[in-house]
């Protein structure tokens, strides 16, 4: 890897960590109701409450908070489903796109409501502008705000004592959207427009090509089926085209929140690899920063709200260590030459003329480092946007994004959900430490007892059940196998990646798997639902249980949770759970594929 690659990674991390404190401090003030935005926009905020018939002073028990979250998300899912099914009857559809099929509409509605943003469809060929804006972009805001609201409720569980309530879900949701997500998105969208990201209601443009393009395409019979010759091979015909349709639309406003809200659903099918969604190196840097910005800053917010910023820094340190370590696995893996191509004498060395390494599926303007760094960031966070095709990564390079998702999306993770997942791992870590020394574990002054650990067990066990169970079922069912076009280990990796993505609410796709089928749309949709809400509910239950407890002063037997020792213990807990659960499955996919690739060099 060239030294410029190290600099790019270093600059990215420095800017990210430098922004964590100011933004984290601001978000803490928002949730405390003390920011300048709270004061200036209070009339607007109160007007929303009056319109919705909400009393913002009414505190909620954890069960009320959870039910409000469920009802709100049910309504969001139903709305996005209806918009897709009725889009042919609704305005802002200049391409006259038809209704989305029921299974795809279900998958997409669930995907955007759960902050997963798995996309079985191609945006520019499926969704009207109205569906993209009113359905998908709105859910980008609201699903992100839901995750952050659950996190704030959990933090109140730690900071309150002998309390029955966790705050008001509607207030947390409104403040997150109004004071955090909207301002950041407006600023980022405007900067992206300045860089060339498209934002328009105009219909798609048809342009003349500077050179006619000729290609072969399958010939269709009168019945619309592909004609085949006597040998059973498809009959093709030569086609020459002189024009191209360029999809446009209100992309920048969606791209900004899809990155900031760790949603990841692209306006266009190829997501941020599309030149109108991510045109320049600067737009690429800003979009990459936006992926991890709020998850990183929320660690500091957590520290402020529990009254000890060292606790937030410790968690951010644990996340950063894992992220950096895995960046330095993926990027060098992609920078290495492909042995198959090397055997053919292809020059794959990095030079002034080329990025070198494995450039299949990567944009020339981003190169190896920015593709690998994005892949790790987007799967460390539960973002899932891509600027390169993960299916074309080397086996090791592709295994890391997959494993990051399988770790439970706690290395930065989704906005809100990543940190509450990591805090659950912290509870398990102090529990393990407590077992070692025979003392009741404590975290932030709250005793961690059997109930919290039972809830933590649900949080940790649900995703592996969805990922491994879903993969196993898909590979046994004919409908599941019918979508796998790559034979052997790589085909297995594609299915495992799809369920790892849905079962952890990431949303990125390995590609290669034909997932827009009734089977995958349904199975992945159900996986996304359980992965989101059956983790958020036990987290809120933990919050409710902790809020009711008194705060125990730290004593000589208390394990300090802001030290490097605890950071190491936390990292060990996350990695061990992730490794023990998923290494057998990874061994069948990317590990086998890597060994097959290395065997090329053997005599």
């Amino acid at each position: 890897m060239a030294h410029t690659g190290y600099w790019q990674i270093a600059i990215y991390l420095i800017v990210l960590l430098a922004l964590a404190k100011p933004l984290g401090g601001y978000m803490a003030r928002v949730y405390q109701g003390e920011s300048a935005a709270n004061r200036w926009l209070a009339p607007l905020e109160n007007r929303f409450y009056r319109l919705a018939g909400v009393d913002p002073r009414q505190e909620m028990h954890w069960t009320g908070y959870a039910v409000a979250m469920l009802i709100f998300n049910l309504l969001g899912t139903a709305t996005v489903y209806a918009l897709q099914r009725l889009q042919h009857l609704l305005p802002l559809n200049p391409q006259v796109l038809g209704a989305v099929t029921p299974d795809s509409a279900f998958n997409t509605a669930v995907s955007f409501a759960t902050n997963t943003n798995w996309q079985g469809y191609g945006g520019e060929t499926t969704m009207s502008y109205l569906t993209q804006m009113l359905g998908l972009t709105v859910q980008n805001f609201l699903s992100a705000a839901t995750g952050m609201a659950v996190l704030v409720a959990l933090i109140r569980g730690f900071s309150r004592r002998n309390a029955d309530t966790l705050g008001n879900f509607w207030v947390d949701l409104t403040r997150t959207t109004l004071y955090i997500l909207l301002p950041l998105s407006v600023v980022l969208a405007l900067v992206l427009v300045g860089q060339g990201v498209v934002q328009t209601f105009s219909p798609y443009r048809t342009v003349q090509l500077t050179q006619p393009v000729g290609y072969e395409q399958p010939k269709l019979g009168v019945d619309g089926q592909v004609l085949k010759d006597t040998a059973g091979k498809p009959v093709t015909e030569a086609v020459v085209t002189k024009e191209q349709t360029i999809a446009v639309g209100p992309a920048a406003s969606q791209v900004a929140i899809k990155q900031l809200g760790t949603n990841g659903g692209g306006f266009f099918n190829v997501n941020s690899a599309h030149p109108l969604e991510n045109p320049t190196p600067l737009s690429n840097l800003l979009e990459m920063l936006a992926i991890l910005l709020i998850p990183a800053a929320l660690c500091y917010t957590f520290g402020v709200l529990v009254g000890d910023t060292r606790q937030g820094w410790a968690i951010l340190a644990a996340m950063t260590v894992v992220l950096v370590a895995l960046v330095f696995v993926t990027v060098p893996a992609e920078q290495q030459s492909n042995p198959v191509l090397a055997a053919l004498g292809v020059d794959q060395a990095a030079s002034a003329q080329q990025a070198g390494g494995n450039m299949e599926g990567k944009e020339t303007r981003f190169g190896i480092v920015n593709s690998g760094l994005w892949a790790v960031a987007t799967t460390a966070a539960s973002n899932g946007s891509v600027n390169s095709m993960h299916d074309s990564f080397t086996p090791v390079g592709g295994m890391i994004p997959m494993w990051l998702m399988q770790l439970g999306e706690v290395i930065f993770g989704g906005v809100g959900s990543g940190l509450y997942g990591m805090i659950v791992f912290a509870l398990v870590a102090v529990f393990v430490a407590g077992l070692m020394i025979g003392r009741t574990p404590e975290y932030l002054g709250k005793k961690i007892e059997a109930y919290e650990i039972k809830m933590a067990a649900i949080v940790i066990l649900v995703p592996p059940l969805l990922v491994l169970g879903g993969t196993a079922l898909a590979l046994m069912a004919d409908a599941g196998k019918a979508s796998v076009f790559n034979p052997g280990a790589h085909g297995f990796s594609e299915v495992l990646y799809a369920f790892s993505s849905a079962g952890n609410n990431n949303g990125s796709a390995f590609g290669g798997l034909s997932a827009n089928t009734p089977y995958y749309n349904s199975m992945l949709g159900v996986a996304m639902l359980f992965a989101r809400y059956w983790l958020a509910i036990p987290v809120l239950a933990i919050a409710g249980s902790l809020a009711a407890k008194k705060i125990v002063p730290a004593g000589p037997g208390t394990l300090p949770t802001h030290t490097p020792l605890f950071v190491a213990l936390l990292i060990g807990t996350v990695l061990l759970v992730g490794a023990l659960t998923f290494i057998p499955a990874l061994a069948l996919g990317p590990v086998v594929e890597h060994l097959q690739l290395m065997a090329i060099n053997q005599p």
């Binding site: 954890w62 959870a66 469920l70 049910l74 899912t77 029921p102 039972k454 239950a541």
Partner: peptide, 30 residues
């Protein structure tokens, strides 16, 4: 409009409300 998937979604959220109830019962009994 096809209501199969809307009903499936509704069933899931009803089940999730059951999880909320179950978690609270467990909390009160522990």
């Amino acid at each position: 409009m096809d209501f199969t998937f809307l009903i499936l979604t509704l069933l899931f959220f009803a089940l999730s409300a059951g999880l909320v109830y179950g978690c609270e019962r467990l909390r009160r009994s522990s």
